[in-house]
């Protein structure tokens, strides 16, 4: 494997500083899902993380080993339990700024901000992956994962060469009448631009998404591929199937509706890769059988 200049620097850094090298055996805990999936992707099993039942349903991958202690809801982390799992290091995120003093009582805290106002999340996720790798003495694994991500995107771009050039509108149905839409500043939006696809939603969004938007707004993007991100409300499919409006949409009539598997909209690189992979796979299927 050829090393880039940046990777060399990272490696040099890892060797020069003794602390991260020893850190490989650290007991790591995290309260943030984006960190959790990054850790697992780098082969690190944390001692504790939050809301694991929901993580399995929403983020789906990577799988969480049974040894990880569930710290309860992301909104109300069980600090007593976190204390009892005796971590050496806690990874946190900008959602938990107000809880950081509490976590510092337990172990040193390192915090990341992937989702902040006016900041593109993809590059921030790359930086976070790199920092975690360096902190845990896994700089090489981190660089390898980042390179793999780039390679996967390159491969997917290649597969999209035959794509019709239409824009994509990533939405999440809230109920049969409303959706939230993911704009250019969302992880989905960033993945689209890395796949050389246009986002059909050009209005501004804040903190990644805009909600609630009435379903009738879809009439403004008749050419776009409608990409539905789960969860889909239980009665939505049934109601849409017999909706005159829905069935009159040019996208729906032409079968330009894709249903993807569940993806965490506020994830890191693993979630970005999952979205890209599922999207390109769905495009592949859409060519063979009609949808809508």
């Amino acid at each position: 494997m050829r090393l880039t200049r940046r990777q060399m620097l990272a490696l040099a850094g890892a060797i020069a500083l003794p602390a991260p090298a020893r850190a490989a055996g650290l007991r790591v805990a995290t309260v943030d899902w984006a960190v959790l999936e990054t850790l697992l992707a780098l082969g690190v099993v944390p001692v504790a993380a939050t809301e694991l039942l929901q993580f399995h349903e929403v983020a789906v991958e990577p799988a969480v080993p049974a040894s990880v202690t569930d710290l309860g809801l992301r909104g109300t982390v069980n600090f007593e339990l976190l204390r009892l799992t005796r971590p050496d290091l806690i990874f946190s995120s900008s959602f938990y700024v107000s809880s950081e003093p509490r976590m510092r009582l337990i172990a040193p805290v390192e915090s990341f901000a992937i989702y902040a106002r006016g900041q593109p999340p993809f590059d921030a996720a790359v930086r976070m992956t790199r920092s975690i790798g360096q902190r845990l003495g896994l700089a090489e694994a981190a660089e390898r994962y980042i390179a793999e991500t780039e390679a996967e995107f390159a491969g997917l771009r290649e597969r999209l060469k035959s794509h019709d050039g239409r824009a994509v509108i990533p939405i999440n149905l809230g109920d049969p009448r409303h959706f939230r839409v993911f704009g250019a500043d969302s992880m989905f939006g960033e993945v689209l631009s890395r796949l050389n696809l246009a986002n059909a939603w050009t209005e501004a969004t804040s903190y990644s998404a805009m909600a609630p938007v009435g379903l009738e707004a879809l009439a403004r993007v008749p050419e776009a591929w409608i990409v539905m991100i789960p969860p889909v409300p239980p009665d939505a499919e049934r109601i849409l199937a017999r909706s005159a409006f829905w069935n009159a949409l040019p996208n729906v009539r032409a079968g330009r509706v894709l249903r993807l598997g569940s993806i965490n909209p506020y994830g890191a690189l693993p979630a970005a890769r999952r979205f890209a992979r599922l999207l390109v796979e769905a495009f592949g299927h859409a060519g063979t059988k009609p949808l809508g």
Partner: peptide, 13 residues
């Protein structure tokens, strides 16, 4: 709070 991903539909509602 317990079912974060359903938040949207419940808010609209």
């Amino acid at each position: 709070l317990a079912k974060g991903e359903y938040v949207l539909s419940l808010f609209i509602w």
